[in-house]
Design a protein around this nucleic acid. Structure first.
Lengths: 101, 101
DNA sequence: TTATAATATATCATTTTTGATATAGACCGT
DNA sequence: ACGGTCTATATCAAAAATGATATATTATAA
């Protein structure tokens, strides 16, 4: 999302995660955000299922734990690229990932 | 792709688009790149089919033509996010996009 | 051929994402 | 309560993506 737009929304009491996230977004952007949320949730779900820590999964993807944690809280500020890469590293096929759309 | 890595490769005679693109990339990164290539090709294909110019399609996505042209030549330097958004704007459903993986 | 539109390439500024670090809080087991 | 691990949050630096502009090349129609 555009940073200026976000700042305006935040000044108006907007909080990341609200339904108001979608204010000012194009339908395409809103759709993309929903998908990102799905992917991020799936990553956490699979990680827990496997019983590995954020630290370990992050390391497997050349990331540090705090940066990994970020995609859980703020998936809208993460590119699909990293979500995709992490899901692949968890063993998901592109088809399986596509099913999350 | 990492910019330093690319610089090293280019210094060694590497050219964007080569099979050598994959040198030094993780399997996940290579897979992601292939998918991006598919998406970029599909965008151009659909654009031509519709008979609209790069300038117009770019404008519909709040882009300028030269930046649009970039994703055709260097999809590895474009996030999935923009490829995705453009495909949505062309009327593709997420499922349809997923089928390109 | 010339004019016009379309596409490609190059470059630099700007914005955004990502990396890195420090640190706080939560949640155990002992 | 203490020590350890895991997770969350904040912040700043670094890297990368994107925006914007100028201009070159190519294609096409008159």
């Amino acid at each position: 999302m555009n940073i200026e737009k976000r700042k305006r929304l935040e000044a108006a009491g907007w909080v990341s995660g609200d339904a108001a996230d979608f204010l000012g977004m194009s339908p395409e952007e809103a759709r993309l955000l929903k998908i990102k949320l799905n992917l991020a949730r799936e990553i956490e779900s699979q990680r827990k299922k496997k019983g590995i820590s954020q630290t370990v999964l992050a390391a497997q993807n050349d990331m540090k734990q705090p940066n990994f944690a970020r995609l859980k809280k703020n998936p809208e500020r993460v590119t699909m690229d990293v979500l995709f890469k992490i899901l692949l590293s968890l063993g998901n096929s592109p088809k399986r990932i596509a099913a999350l759309f």
